[in-house]
Design a protein around this nucleic acid. Structure first.
Length: 283
DNA sequence: CTTACGGCCTGGGTGC
DNA sequence: TGCACCCAGGCCGTAA
């Protein structure tokens, strides 16, 4: 599932391939995941890609229209669970479930493939006033320790839910929430407000370490994720709890457990990450 | 306002 | 071989 490290890896790959390129053709398959398919078909041909940005799990392709200055726009892309954004030779075989083709002026092609179509794509006329974007929380790699602690310390929600909440911190999903909590030795069911300052500091450190290492290894490939050139990531080999239920904890040897927390399957070590006492929910 | 929860979208993988 | 069911992330509506 593309989370911050995977989307960052894709963004870096696209930054090497797209800025300066002009889109010369658009072809769409199924469009039920696209906000306004007609706008994309009409406005993108001729547009020049000026920059590639990442905001949490969103990708933004900043566009300049073909005819002079006018208004700039951005193509907003969210990969959902199974979205892939790959540049390739137009003659390359087309994978099943490929629904968007952008022909580029260097003879290459940018394709969007998405088995589940949980992803989203849309054209923003004014990025700065996009409500879905300005309600996003801080980037976890940019937040200072003080900012990070302030975000969590007065919240009564479970820390797992807070880490997953894109309005608190942007970009963390299920894999990196579980991996970060394991590293910080914090149970996912703990409440934000009940965490000690020391635990909050550890969590801040762990989130940053996990995300940075995952970016270094080009993301986690579990099922669908590939980078912008179609290559697998490597961080799945470093997972300590995610999808390791029943296996031994790398730190203490206890059996990793899986439980639903905040509506998401959560993986943790019941010994290294002690459950909160006050809740009757057992672990 | 904050939090919890269920449902919805889709289709590959799994287990019977 | 078939087929029902689970599950994933984000979002939304509802209720407390």
């Amino acid at each position: 599932m593309p989370e911050l490290p995977e989307v960052e890896t894709i963004a870096r790959g696209l930054r090497a391939a797209l800025p300066g390129r002009r889109i010369v053709g658009v072809r769409l398959g199924k469009t039920d995941f696209i906000d306004d398919p007609a706008a994309i078909e009409q406005q993108l041909p001729g547009a020049r890609i000026a920059a590639v940005r990442r905001l949490g799990k969103f990708l933004l392709l900043d566009l300049e229209p073909s005819n002079g200055s006018a208004h700039n726009s951005s193509l907003l892309i969210h990969l959902g669970m199974t979205g892939r954004l790959v540049t390739c030779d137009p003659a390359a075989p087309v994978p099943l479930h490929t629904h968007v083709f952008f022909a580029l002026d260097d003879g290459r092609e940018l394709r969007y493939t998405d088995v589940r179509r949980f992803g989203r794509m849309g054209l923003l006329q004014d990025t700065s006033r996009e409500k879905s974007l300005d309600s996003l929380g801080l980037d976890p790699l940019e937040a200072s320790e003080e900012q990070f602690i302030a975000l969590l310390k007065d919240r009564r929600a479970r820390v797992k839910a807070l880490l997953l909440d894109q309005h608190v911190l942007r970009g963390i999903g299920n894999i990196y929430a579980d991996e970060s909590l394991w590293r910080a030795r914090i149970h996912p069911m703990r409440l934000g407000a009940k965490l000690t300052v020391d635990e909050l500091r550890r969590l801040h450190r762990s989130v940053r370490d996990v995300l940075n290492e995952a970016i270094r290894l080009r993301g986690s490939s579990i099922a669908d994720y590939v980078d912008s050139e179609g290559n697998l990531g490597g961080f799945q080999r470093r997972h300590r709890v995610y999808q390791r239920d029943g296996k031994k904890c790398f730190r203490c040897g206890a059996k990793i457990r899986r439980a639903i927390v905040a509506g998401r399957s959560s993986h943790f070590c019941p010994r290294c990450q002690p459950a909160p006492r006050t809740r009757r929910t057992q672990t």
